[in-house]
Design a protein around this nucleic acid. Sequence first.
DNA 1: ATTTATGCAAATCGTTTGCAAACCT
DNA 2: AGGTTTGCAAACGATTTGCATAAAT
Lengths: 149, 149
Amino acid sequence: MPAPTLHATTAQWLTKDNQRYTSQRRALVAVLADAVQPLTIPQLLERQPGLAQSSAYRNLAVLERAGVVRRIVTSDEFARYELAEELTHHHHHHLICTDCGGVTDFELSDAIEHTLETALAAMAARTGFVIRDHQLDIVGTCPKCRSGG
Amino acid sequence: MPAPTLHATTAQWLTKDNQRYTSQRRALVAVLADAVQPLTIPQLLERQPGLAQSSAYRNLAVLERAGVVRRIVTSDEFARYELAEELTHHHHHHLICTDCGGVTDFELSDAIEHTLETALAAMAARTGFVIRDHQLDIVGTCPKCRSGG
DNA sequence: ATTTATGCAAATCGTTTGCAAACCT
DNA sequence: AGGTTTGCAAACGATTTGCATAAAT
């Protein structure tokens, strides 16, 4: 159940980037909003029959440039896509399963997240690096693969 | 200046994995030990003339399986390689510059690192996920690109 | 001797791109 | 009309692999 402002905000961000909010792009955003975890291109094509692979790549690139979508690249064969945190207001990190390649979201407590961000800001100030984003990935084995393997 | 135990430990880990510590692999480890940041394959080939590209890929895969080397994959075109933390005893994270693609290491204070690890362990216990490793990446712009761009 | 490592060139495969038709405004 | 988007098929490029030779044990 996407928030009512989801498509409105997306449209706005695309417009700001001189891009149109076409029906395909709207459908992509809807699928990503419904997904419980970041999706690969094959998974997106499965959930959106009739979508050409090249259009998926192109539209996701457009959505990424507009800040609507985030691309996650693991050592897995496919990249994965999810809605940007700025859009979902849902701060989270990733559990990456080395067995099945799946990516699951998790959250830290606000306190720890805040501590971490403060430390990173201090580090950035020290080094002159400008932080755009941070990404905490946990690599290991998910419960499903742990029992099934 | 590599620690005296570097090659000894590497040899031991490779042997445990039924792999030989050939001169090429030794040279790769030496180059990585000298590097101040994770290196791409082209950078490795530059620093080790005469090394075949395919051998670089193959040997780095062997070293990665043995736990000697860690492969870092960003959205950049090339993957990057560095010595594993278990070998350098040097806990660190990565600053990834979206401009030049460079990866720079940084450390958090022991206190924050410990807080973070405790929180992650609790999360793992809650979800049933088995943690092998965690990776904290900061995405942004490095000082060089910030002034030069 | 037998297994493993290496270099070369070719294959692989996720992703990107050229182009003509369909779409929007 | 004037631009953008889409689908198809072809191109791209980092990585992998087959095979014959060299090295290691």
